[in-house]
Design a protein around this nucleic acid. Structure first.
Lengths: 216, 216, 216, 216
DNA sequence: AATGAATGAGCTTTCATTCAT
DNA sequence: CATGAATGAAAGCTCATTCAT
């Protein structure tokens, strides 16, 4: 299963005109609605087009194949998510690490929680495409943002920032996903969210008290 | 112990005879091979049957649908995994928590790592079916095992074991999944594994030093 | 007038455009040809589509199932037949009963005889579907037409028209069917046709001479 | 659709032993039950065997293919029916024609009515096989019986017995079939039955009063 | 003989994609 | 450019029939 070259998976035309952008968003929203309504297996391009109020032909004007549609949707979604994280990171520049961790977890968790059903449905639609490059790009972007943030921490200077950063991100992303996929009840989801912050903080505390970080 | 899936998702006949069990395993293995070779989207029942060296008809004698095949495969896989974890938990009975955490993470990680490609492919095959009940059953089983283990810890008595247990499991399962799905290079994967243990332990340390647990 | 079949057994799209109507007729004709060529058991949607010179996909655009195809064909056929009968009935309005009977039998018999092989094949295609509602609708339509005709008879006023009408129709339809299904040689078929007219007429004569009808 | 040579359609072994005959009847009954339960389209040999309490293998010992099963069933059924008619005909030897007609219609109608659902189901199962030879054989047998009966009539000597006989049989068989297939309510079915007798009798009366028959 | 698991040709149906209008 | 009817490859699934046990 070789990945198709990403060029094939990008919208055919740059949304230079407002009209195109609107249509694009309508299609994305329709895709999500169909995903929610009938699941990824029974999603058909015709159904999406219908829901979007355009013809299949038009859909194919924007996306050369079904995969491109999924790819575009994920990209759209991940771009928005990455932006939120970057924004949060910039806002926390120079803050103490504990605030950073809390903000990071909260931002990510809230973004996912905003439309929890969409989150779940997107997690599952992933199979339909080879989205590793997408995930990787997202990861890199976030990685850079959080690394920069942690490097600016007021209270600690990390000796091995990259490992710590990777660990935190892997843990946070993974935990959130697990919590959503298991469809934990609200109360438990909240509890886990709080504990996750606690856990990350105690981890950083521990790291600081050993050779991997030192007080500034 | 075992999950209670909708009857139509269970193998049609109980493998009473050795022959049937063998065939079942052959089919499972073939499914994984096809999954690895062509991905979930292009997996067809015919292809699986071919690879397994049986006829489609036979495949359908064991699984009434394609979905049942996926369901069965996941069940098979999760049953094996749960068993390993239960075994590890029993072995750690009465040990100090730090050993428990280390054993838990290592067991889980190794189980996944043994056949990393299979792990990845199964994570992705999920789209094809509604496996929430399966996941739930697995989670319950593991939850019970680890809760019992932590309750027996030599060094700490937890006041709010259930939340702590849930947090640990969600974190560990999620982190491992993230690490595998992102296909991290071996070195980084190892590093994260080590850090995860560290993180969990510092979390428990922290918990113990506050109101949620006390030294025995 | 038209039967009210379960929606799922009706052509998917109303033939609004001439093109669609043409295609529909082509498909019906192809179905009959296939029925004649290989029989109902070996009729496949693919074969019908091939014979019709369209793709299977197109066939399924007009008929959501194989059953709907049979249903549609029967409806088409029965509609045509009913029309002919209604026409004949109107033409005989006010005539003497003996002419009515003769016209009714002849019309029906000729309609069936026009394409005797098609008649036979349609009688047999019935197994494939639950066409009782279709038959019922046809029967009602014809019943109304003949009842109106007989009520207008110049020579007799029937006291119990509904029973007599039902008897005549049941007899005529049944006899014709029997004659076709047994594939009687032409000479015998003709003889039976003539005798059937005789029989119906002597029946009406008898009815008139007893309490069920009186001379006008 | 050429008919298979009848030899292929006859039970493989003559039921010389009581056991075999019993099994045969069990299979026939099971076939009818399945026909009633799921219809001809979803009748499978496996289902019939299951219902009959034997294995498919055994079923195939008695009938070399599915068609042979249907063929056998119809033969069995028609044999019984023919016997009843023959018996009635012999009993009416030398009686007046009006009694003959009444007995003939009543016997046939009652035989069909005894298990009306079975009658209906058999009428419809016909499509599954090329049973013209069967029907023909049945027709000949009955034809002979009724012809002999009518020839012995106390009151009339027919000049053209064969046409009259054919007409009567075609009419009676056809009318009964029509009445059953349209699933007429009991009251109407009865009424038609009575009228049919009346009709046949007035037909014979008419025939006698013209050149085709003369008073003895 | 009886059994019933195994077979695989063949069926119905779907749906991504095209292209004449 | 938009449309949506037409396409047909390919999928899931069935079931008559065989044959080793």
């Amino acid at each position: 299963m070789a990945s198709k070259p990403p060029t094939h998976l990008t919208p055919r035309k740059k949304p230079r005109q407002a009209r195109a952008t609107v249509t694009l968003n309508v299609i994305f929203e329709a895709t999500i609605q169909v995903l929610l309504a009938v699941g990824p297996r029974r999603l058909t391009t015709t159904r999406v087009a219908e829901r979007a109020g355009v013809s299949v032909g038009t859909l194919y004007q924007y996306f050369p194949h079904k995969q491109a549609l999924f790819y575009g949707l994920n990209q759209h979604y991940l771009d928005g998510l990455a932006e939120k994280i970057e924004y949060a990171c910039r806002a926390l520049h120079g803050a103490p690490t504990s605030q950073m961790v809390e903000a990071l977890v909260t931002t990510y968790w809230n973004a996912k929680n905003e439309r929890a059903d969409v989150t779940r449905v997107l997690y599952r639609s992933v199979v339909e495409l080879d989205n590793e490059p997408l995930i990787e790009a997202f990861a890199c972007r976030v990685d850079a943002a959080t690394a920069a943030m942690f490097a600016s921490a007021a209270d600690v200077a990390f000796t091995d920032l990259s490992v710590i950063n990777l660990t935190l991100l892997t843990t946070i992303f993974g935990t959130v996903r697990s919590a959503f996929e298991r469809n934990l009840p609200d109360a438990e989801r909240h509890a886990v969210q709080k504990q996750l912050i606690l856990m990350c903080n105690s981890y950083l505390e521990q790291v600081r008290s050993t050779s991997n970080g030192r007080l500034k």
